[in-house]
């Protein structure tokens, strides 16, 4: 990726921004799916119970912290790998 010239870098940057938007949407929908699956199992009412709500809150907090931590470790590993090349 670092072998691109300036114009290519610019074009690539646009691509990255588009992908970031897509990634964000994907992260969001998988968060909703995961936390809904783990927290909401009772369908005797159409409203979220307070227990379900608090579970969703904690679940999404944890989900985000998890992806943050994985992101950090991922970057470290990837940087180490690039240096070895």
């Amino acid at each position: 990726m670092d072998q691109l010239n300036n114009r290519e870098q610019q074009e690539f940057q646009q691509l990255v921004e588009q992908k970031q938007m897509k990634d964000f949407m994907r992260l969001y929908s998988s968060l909703v799916q995961r936390c809904f699956t783990d927290c909401v199992n009772d369908f005797t009412s159409k409203a979220l119970s307070s227990r379900e709500e608090s579970c969703l809150e904690k679940c999404s907090e944890k989900f985000l912290k998890h992806s943050e931590r994985v992101g950090q470790r991922f970057q470290e590993q990837n940087a180490a790998l690039m240096q070895k090349r």
């Binding site: 994907r26 783990d38 927290c39 904690k58 679940c59 999404s60 944890k62 912290k65 998890h66 931590r69």
Partner: peptide, 21 residues
């Protein structure tokens, strides 16, 4: 993506007593 999903299912139990890891 696959790394994140895999490590989440392996390391984060599906019960949320708290939001912290």
């Amino acid at each position: 993506d696959s790394l994140m999903n895999t490590c989440r299912s392996k390391c984060i139990p599906a019960e949320y007593g708290e939001g912290e890891i």
